[in-house]
């Protein structure tokens, strides 16, 4: 799972039937402080995230293990909207 920020939406009319009615969001990977990293991901929205949301992305075959994405041809899903991250320890 990684942290990401939703930066946009993908409009697509030609897609698998099981993806109909699901939002494809363009996300940019960030670190836990919210600083943007380099990679972009496209993920299916399972929690009604909006543009600018700080979210948690899940990948791979696990991404199909939600009600919304069961048996859909996807490999990335937004599983949570993050309110806050608390760092309690720092290691050397």
């Amino acid at each position: 799972m990684i942290f990401a920020k939703v930066i946009g939406t993908i409009v697509s009319s030609q897609k698998d039937e099981s993806l109909n009615g699901k939002k494809l969001l363009l996300c940019k990977e960030v670190d836990y402080k919210g600083n943007p990293l380099k990679s972009y991901h496209i993920a299916v929205d399972a929690v009604q995230a909006g543009e600018g949301s700080f979210v948690l992305l899940s990948f791979g075959s696990s991404a199909r293990m939600t009600e919304a994405t069961k048996n859909a041809p996807i490999d990335a899903v937004i599983i949570a909207i993050i309110d806050d991250i608390q760092i309690t320890q720092t290691l050397k």
């Binding site: 799972m1 836990y32 909207i81 309690t88 320890q89």
Partner: peptide, 30 residues
């Protein structure tokens, strides 16, 4: 080692009630 907690109220229902942590992979020597 658990170094942080992730707070998220809106989650998919499959992981409701499950806490999320930030974990730093370490060796046995820490």
């Amino acid at each position: 080692i658990v170094i942080g907690v992730v707070w998220a109220t809106k989650k998919v229902k499959e992981i409701n009630g499950c806490r999320m942590y930030i974990v730093q992979p370490i060796s046995t020597k820490g």
